[in-house]
Design a protein around this nucleic acid. Sequence first.
DNA 1: ATGATTTTTGACATCGTTGTCATATATTGC
DNA 2: GCAATATATGACAACGATGTCAAAAATCAT
Lengths: 338, 338
Amino acid sequence: MSTVTIKDVAARAGVSPKTVSRVINGEDHVRPEIREAVQRVVAELNYRPNAFARSLSSSRSYLLGLFIDDPVSGYAADVQHGALLRCRERSYHLVVEPVELNRPDWKDHVRASIASLRLDGAIIAPPICDAAELIDLFRESDVPHVLIAPSGESPDSGAVRMDDRGAAREMTAYLIGLGHRHIGLVQGPLSHSASARREEGFRAAMAEAGIAVDEDAVLRGDFSFRSGLERGEALLDRTDRPSAVFACNDDMALGVLITAMKLGIAVPQSLSVAGFDDSASSRAAWPQITTIRQPKAEMAAAAVDILVDPSFRKKSAGPQSRLMLPHALVVRGSTGAA
Amino acid sequence: MSTVTIKDVAARAGVSPKTVSRVINGEDHVRPEIREAVQRVVAELNYRPNAFARSLSSSRSYLLGLFIDDPVSGYAADVQHGALLRCRERSYHLVVEPVELNRPDWKDHVRASIASLRLDGAIIAPPICDAAELIDLFRESDVPHVLIAPSGESPDSGAVRMDDRGAAREMTAYLIGLGHRHIGLVQGPLSHSASARREEGFRAAMAEAGIAVDEDAVLRGDFSFRSGLERGEALLDRTDRPSAVFACNDDMALGVLITAMKLGIAVPQSLSVAGFDDSASSRAAWPQITTIRQPKAEMAAAAVDILVDPSFRKKSAGPQSRLMLPHALVVRGSTGAA
DNA sequence: ATGATTTTTGACATCGTTGTCATATATTGC
DNA sequence: GCAATATATGACAACGATGTCAAAAATCAT
């Protein structure tokens, strides 16, 4: 099964390679009958354009890079999957590039990808979407890039986000609505800008309800299951424990939930636990965890759309490259009346 | 920051592009002083070869494909990460291609990747590594490929595996050693060939110990947490329940564990639960789950090594392209004396 | 029917690298 | 010191597509 080139197709269809190229790329100025004939030959010969030749010749690589901190996390998997499927629909390919900011050579790796792969665009996932030094690398080399859930605005960058603050506010309001007054918070790590936004939402809802936050019941975790276990123990293993705990992601919420079980605290009867993300961990427990559905795959898909859109590639960052996607409160068994 | 080409380097170093190419690719026949001079210029100009031009010219793409069924699973993430890191070390890139065998157009997608990306090699993850039709696609187009944990041998394919049967046997023997006689098994799905091997190991260990298997306590799951919950309930919510349950992966083991908690069965005092994989779920519970550490990332890394190795690319599938990597029994809190 | 205009088509150069092969230079043996 | 050999180097043509631009064909207006 040797390789079929555009010349083979052209010869067989009795036209020039350039005409075949036009048909392949859906360009104008081809007579319908010729277009059809070429398409028939393409199908017959099962011709696929060589991506490298195409990229070398045009200036497009049909390659998008997904830059991500920890590709093993469930979050990353969802983002990647969303991007992957949309890329396929758009006939793009996705190259996943892990970025470890604590390694001294991370910049080299990123530069190498940019330069040698000639990426058509980059998707930058949290938390590294807030690393200015990283963003600058893309800006310097004029690579269109979209940030997923970044903290701020960046003039040359697209952004796709959800309303972390609003979602956390909703969740907190929901807990308050259930009658809870003493609510603990397990914060996310400072390295993730979403942590701060979620905390803000929490405090806003508490303030709106006129409830003072018990600062002793606000503890910082690092988004890991283990930290949920530990903070959960600190929060629950005492006499004046809160009646509800809001953890800023599901892994930590799961930790809190497991801790409650260890301590013999009935959920949701004696304690409500809420998480954030709607990740697999929120379903990997009993009762299942009430959480916020975060549109991870959708954000990634939207990022692909923005990057592929020719208008974004020219004039940097119009308003259509700043998206806010909707979230949803998912009520499950881990929360109940106070 | 415009693009630096090999000509720029050549001009500045006072040599021909071809010589620069030799230096870049570490070929012989370059005088040490010239080599050094070129390297200096490369560093100065921060030159990176254009991957497309290189691929077009040589016949190598420096691209490996990872073909995977469900890229969202934790298993996939580990495999991908292992492959990714090793690819980077070897200056290769990894393209992840989801393959959904239940979609009618899956073959087209795979063919398109092979043909248009000119992959230097493919890594095929379970369970699709057992899909003969898929393997044939690679064989037909002469793309070197390595299967991860396949069921059988395939003449032209490399393979990296672990001893699923042996590991399951060890785990079962361990449970028997703890004094358990009545052991339940939650099988994996028939679609994964590993399921059968693990079941075999279980039965072998039972037979060796002269214990009859209670066939009513052998239930098939589908590797999902939910199926673990359901099978757990079927297994535990009855008077003659087993004193230990071996689930063929961690997600299901977690389901069994959670079910035990719901039913008020103390683990490990009244019930031992064992899993398989050493995935995140095995640690996302209390007690943590005793399991088999499966060298997922290592298998993927080994697959990359095999594919990149020039000898494999020529003569197909020597013995060094058939690897068996070691596993380990990880004893944690979910198992105890009967 | 004729020239003016528009649409289609193809020749050819080009993208940035590497393979091939001929040539230039260094090394060896005698 | 001079062949004979080995080693270094570069000229040039690929690789397989697309961009540019000029030529050819079709359409239109009169």
